[in-house]
């Protein structure tokens, strides 16, 4: 069991969360071609390295956040609120 630290609730067992996947920029749905949209949906970088991911605190505050995790060791070096959340709260970047 790995320990994931929710930016709102603190450290919890990973079983409380849902792994959403690698974070990546979403193309504009109105401007993207079907091919671009499918690439966004399906193609991942799948690194054996540090990855920036989105996790969801399913059995807790039910919020999404960003996680920096190494996919070979499963070490987590940072969790933080997603950029969009920080903008909403008027803090951060």
């Amino acid at each position: 069991m790995i320990l994931v630290s929710c930016p709102w609730c603190g450290p919890r067992n990973s079983s409380e969360f849902r792994y959403v996947g690698e974070s990546k920029g979403r193309p504009d749905p109105n401007a993207a071609t079907p091919e671009e949209w499918r690439r966004y949906l399906y193609v991942k970088s799948n690194p054996a390295d540090w990855a920036t991911e989105t996790w969801y605190h399913r059995a807790g505050c039910r919020r999404f956040f960003a996680v920096e995790r190494h996919t070979v060791t499963n070490e987590i070096r940072e969790t933080r609120r997603p950029a969009a959340q920080l903008r909403l709260e008027g803090g951060g970047s």
Binding site: S14, S15, R18, Y19, G21, E22, A48, T71, V72, N74
Partner: peptide
């Protein structure tokens, strides 16, 4: 396992 990983460690859960 519920998240992507290249680790082949087993888990108690």
């Amino acid at each position: 396992d519920p998240y992507a990983s290249y680790s082949t460690r087993g888990s108690l859960e």
